[in-house]
Every structure is written in C-alpha cells, then in structure tokens.
C-alpha cells in the first residue's frame, strides 16, 4: 500500500513533503504481527490463496503506520486488478494511501463491511479487514511475493534504514 501518500491533511497541509519519513525512536517502535501462510508484497499488502480465490488486504504493519482508518475506497466486483497497480485507497486521519494489488486477476468479491466500518482494517487487518477477493489470472505471480519470515525481515530493514 501507500504507493502514493499524497494530499494528507497533515502531511501535505503542513508542508511535510511526500518524502516524509517518520523515524521512530526505539522506544516507540512496535512490532506488528505477520502471519505464517500468507504472501506479502513490498508495498505492504498480504494475499491469502485458498483454492481458486486469493484474498487481499493490508498488513498489520501498514495499518499501524497509517493510524485510524476513516474511509476505504474499493473497486467493484467483476473488475480486474493487475499486479503492482492500485485498486483502491485507504484514508486515515493522517494520510491518503493507494492500495496495490500483489497479483493480477478478476475481482470476485469486495468487503462491503468496510464502507460502514473502515476501522476493521485497524482492528483486524488479516481477518475482518480484508479488502478484495480475486480469481488469480497468473498464479505464478504468487511465487514472487515474500513469505512471513522474509516480510518480517523486510519491515525490520526498512525501519532500520530510516
């Protein structure tokens, strides 16, 4: 997610650049949960592939950094998504972030609960806060994604770098 963090009322309005990089002190660093069995994109979305359908959402790490989600923009069922391109957006008090699809495919279901309760993304990022279900058009794309261990390491390295 967060391909673009633009026009955030705090970031943009306060003239924080898009290049804003919150650097967290070790004290405030929190370790978010990463689930085994899921695949992760470096833009911080997860995919759970079960049978012919893959469920997509944003990670605990991502929601933690975004803060309280107040609105979720989702696509319509029947549309298609492409790997590494945006399919929706999540608005928090802090910022607007585009959400990328980790894989390509046809959207077979969207989580309509999110329109009334966008906070599910914060309270349950891997379960009730899922965003879309996709019928993958190229299942081999899943192999290019990270596993849980790799993603945990990726997050740690990102944090350490900034």
């Amino acid at each position: 997610m967060a391909l673009r963090i633009w026009a955030s009322s705090t970031a943009n309005a306060l003239r924080l650049s898009s290049a804003t990089r919150p650097h967290f002190s070790p004290l405030s660093r929190c370790f978010s949960s990463v689930l085994d069995g899921l695949k992760y994109a470096n833009s911080h979305e997860w995919v759970k592939h079960e049978g012919s359908v893959a469920t997509i959402g944003i990670t605990d790490h991502a929601q933690d950094h975004l803060g309280e989600v107040v609105f979720v923009d989702l696509p319509d069922t029947g549309g298609s998504v492409a790997k590494a391109t945006g399919f929706g957006a999540v608005e928090s008090v802090k910022a607007t972030s585009d959400i990328n699809s980790p894989i390509s495919g046809e959207i077979v279901e969207v989580n309509t609960k999110l329109s009334d309760t966008p906070g599910l993304i914060n309270s349950s990022p891997y379960e009730d806060g899922w965003m879309i279900k996709v019928k993958p058009s190229n299942p081999s794309e899943l192999e290019s994604l990270m596993g849980a261990k790799e993603y945990t390491k990726f997050c740690e390295e990102e944090d350490a770098a900034h």
Binding site: A2, R4, S18, A19, T20, H44, T59, E158, D159
Partner: peptide, 17 residues
C-alpha cells in the same frame, strides 16, 4: 511501510517534479 513510504515518497517527488 515506514521506509516504504519514504522510498515511495521519493518516487512521487520525482514524478511531481
């Protein structure tokens, strides 16, 4: 995402530029 945001922000900055 922290670093990701930053890197992605850089991309955006270049694009905006």
């Amino acid at each position: 995402m922290r670093g990701g945001l930053w890197q992605l922000g850089q991309t955006i900055t270049r694009r905006l530029g």
